[in-house]
Amino acid sequence: MPLPTPLSGVVPPLCTPLTPGGDIDVPSLRALAERLIGAGVTGLFALGSSGETAYLSDARRRTALRTVVEAAAGRVPVLAGAIDMTTARVLDHARAAAGLGADALVVTAPYYTRTHPLEIAGHFRRIREAVDLPLFAYDIPMAVHTKLPSRTVLELAADGTLAGLKDSSGDDGALRRLLVELRRRGLDATFSVLTGSELTVDGALLAGAHGVVPGLGNVDPEGYVRLYAHARAGRWADAAAEQDRLAALFAITDVGDEAVMGRSSSALGAFKTALHLLGVIDSPATAAPQVPLGDAATKSVCRLLEDGGLL
């Protein structure tokens, strides 16, 4: 479906349900997409960090994206992550996503080797020239070891290379300055800025962001839809109260035992465990080499869901 300009609202980055053997659990992924659409989200982002795209083979990426596109059935746009180390590899993913019916692409800077801002700009331009889909830059320095320079983002917004930005940098000051400069240049009416920071959505919306891409939105999409509605209506006290509740719920990402697992295992395992406890997906399995949550962590997730009014 045509992508709204600018894209706004709540666009959750879907988890990718897996079978215990590591295959894509197609029925569970369809159920998750249906749940999010029913909650009132404005788009779906497949194959992002919450979707474990870095852990999936190319064939499994295609299966996941095909499933999400078919489940959406044109009701909301589907953004597809085309995330990889080099321009050539990203182009392969981007062309596959276009062939599967994605409505837009989400791409990081190249990684593995460090790149210069001019090389990053060239990377995005080559992708946009090769694949005729709206292109969103994904700023996630924790994963790619490069912070997208605001100057580069502004340049690519002005020349039409980029349709928007998913900001997961955690740098709220830089985000605020970017939003101010977009407004000064008259680009905020066409260029979409979506925050990926689940804990500061109310502040980002107050500063002028167009929407949010919340991993926790897999678990509580209604909460983020309410938060966005409160903010757009100027009910900032209500928005802050909803944000506070979601911030408490976000503690599920900290339940993993740091002695035996990494941050990804804890956070993504918690999202999937919550979805399993809520009856949305069949298994909380995560992709290897991530470690599953233990019994104590699962009980903590259950308690936090109860505290958040979800169970």
Rank of each mutant, 00 (worst) to 15 (best):
A270K: 07
R185Q: 15
A33K: 04
E222A: 15
L178D: 09
E119V: 14
E181F: 10
G217W: 02
K147Y: 10
D23V: 07
L304I: 13
V68S: 12
G48N: 03
P12D: 00
V213E: 04
S283I: 08
R60E: 13
H145A: 10
L65E: 02
G51F: 01
V11T: 08
V76R: 01
R184C: 08
V212M: 00
V11F: 05
T195P: 07
A259P: 08
D202A: 15
G215H: 03
D159Q: 04
G173V: 13
V301E: 01
P292G: 02
G38W: 07
A239P: 13
L278Q: 15
P289R: 10
D295N: 12
A239L: 05
G22Y: 01
P134H: 00
A137N: 00
R177P: 12
A189G: 13
G99P: 05
R176D: 10
G256Q: 04
A88T: 13
A251L: 09
A296T: 14
L36D: 06
A209R: 00
T286H: 05
A71Y: 08
A94T: 03
T152P: 02
S168Q: 08
P6Q: 14
L175S: 14
D159A: 07
M1W: 14
S168Y: 05
A288N: 12
G208Q: 08
M1A: 13
G208S: 12
L205R: 02
A285H: 02
P221L: 10
A274C: 09
V193L: 13
A274I: 05
G217I: 04
D244F: 13
L162A: 03
A288G: 15
A96K: 13
R232E: 15
L205V: 01
P214A: 01
V212F: 00
R303Y: 09
L304H: 09
F191G: 05
L187A: 05
R125N: 08
L36H: 06
T195Y: 10
T113I: 14
L105S: 05
V201A: 08
L14N: 04
M1S: 15
L178C: 06
R235H: 14
L154D: 05
A109Q: 12
V78F: 04
G101P: 05
A233M: 04
A109Y: 10
S8Q: 12
D307S: 11
P27F: 04
G38Y: 04
R245S: 09
D188N: 06
A297D: 03
L293R: 06
R66P: 06
A229V: 13
P110R: 10
G74S: 07
L194N: 07
E198C: 02
T200P: 03
G48C: 03
R89D: 15
Q243S: 03
G203D: 11
V201C: 03
L182F: 12
G170V: 02
L156F: 09
S50P: 11
A287I: 11
M142N: 10
R263D: 07
L305E: 05
D244V: 08
V26L: 00
A237H: 13
E222V: 15
L133C: 06
G51H: 00
H123G: 05
H210N: 09
R114I: 15
E181L: 15
K272G: 04
G9N: 12
G256H: 07
D295F: 06
A130G: 02
T146P: 01
V180F: 14
P12H: 05
A204Q: 08
G256P: 03
D84A: 09
D132T: 11
V68E: 10
